[in-house]
């Protein structure tokens, strides 16, 4: 189904704003002590998850990173189920077992939420292999940061995917810093598309601050993967506006650099473009802001009202409940 320009613009702006406001609220609730553990915010990178997800179909599976609130929201998880998860409530999308870094929703084929850098790539390859062996439609979208490229699992996975010709879309979110280590301080070769090509995986670099560029590049990549049943690699050049986590004094980058990237804010940029092109009116943008504000407010209420899983349930789901004669320790 073809969307009109204004419908598409509305979807993209709504998607990005929903992530931005959710993350801002999360930071606030972290400071208030409602959310604990590690919290990695996606502010600045919204165009990537938003553009990519709108190019995918329900039968596609997603494997994401620990900075994945944006991916989960863009895939259609409710802000309420994610917020409840971060509050540690039983109504959370992982029943309070995962927290910010481990959001799961099998119904929408959202397979987490992985906090071992690079650890999700082999899973994506195996999942795609099973798609191929069972002749099922649907590709696998696998997100990771540029930091993962230093991990052995990146290289093992690209090789396996190309060797076995399985439908994986490798989506590298290059925000230039692996925590505090700049790309050129950790990689002798910083041409990431070239690295993928070394495994005979085709790919390209995309401006990750431009949601239309992300959407179009992903649509083409998706078509390529579906047509040829082989992997493809996209590098999105993006930037995180906030600290790595809530424990980061940001000693490794200059304020000027951050400010420079903020000038390229994907939301401000796209809003201006949509107004200029006549896709959206100022009133339409207000309506989107209001809708998003309502969803986030409801999410916080839902999380507040959520319940704590009784500690008697602590050991549930270590194993699948089964009829066995064994004695579980």
């Amino acid at each position: 189904m073809m969307l009109s320009h204004s419908e598409r613009a509305r979807n993209l702006l709504h998607g990005m704003l929903r992530i931005r406001r959710f993350e801002e609220k999360s930071a606030e609730l972290y400071s208030a002590g409602k959310i604990r553990g590690f919290l990695h915010l996606y502010v600045g990178e919204e165009a990537v998850a938003t553009g990519v997800m709108q190019a995918l179909r329900p039968e596609d599976a997603i494997f994401a990173t620990y900075r994945e609130h944006g991916h989960a929201l863009a895939r259609g998880l409710t802000a309420a189920s994610i917020m409840a998860e971060m509050f540690g409530k039983a109504e959370g999308c992982s029943r309070g077992r995962g927290g910010s870094m481990h959001l799961f929703d099998v119904a929408s084929k959202f397979y987490g939420g992985s906090a071992i850098v690079g650890g999700g790539l082999p899973l994506a390859v195996g999942y795609a292999l099973a798609q191929k062996m069972q002749q099922r439609p649907g590709l696998v979208a696998c997100f990771f940061g540029e930091g993962a490229i230093a991990e052995g699992e990146f290289h093992e996975s690209l090789n396996l995917a190309a060797l076995w010709k399985v439908p994986v879309l490798f989506l590298c979110e290059n925000n230039y810093y692996a925590m505090g280590t700049a790309l050129e301080r950790s990689e002798a070769e910083v041409d990431l598309v070239g690295k993928a090509a070394g495994y005979r995986v085709q790919g390209e670099s995309v401006d990750g601050m431009d949601v239309l560029a992300v959407l179009e590049a992903t649509q083409q990549a998706v078509q390529f993967v579906r047509e040829h049943n082989v992997p493809y690699f996209l590098e999105f050049r993006t930037y995180r506006f906030r600290a790595h986590s809530m424990f980061d004094p940001e000693l490794y980058r200059s304020k000027a650099e951050v400010e420079q990237w903020k000038q390229r804010c994907p939301i401000a940029g796209f809003s201006a473009c949509a107004l200029r092109e006549g896709w959206l009116t100022p009133e339409a943008i207000h309506v989107i802001e209001d809708e998003v504000a309502q969803e986030i407010a409801h999410a916080v209420e839902f999380a507040e009202a959520g319940t704590w899983e009784p500690t008697e349930m602590l050991s549930r789901d270590v194993y699948t409940e089964r009829k066995g004669t064994g004695t579980v320790p």
């Binding site: 082999p122 195996g126 798609q131 069972q134 699992e153 093992e156 396996l160 060797l163």
Partner: peptide
Amino acid sequence: DTPLSESGFVGAGIGAALNGMLP
């Protein structure tokens, strides 16, 4: 047959197990 990529192919086994196979 797999390459010498223990982490890669064990992880691939997990991914395939998540998706309906019995590897």
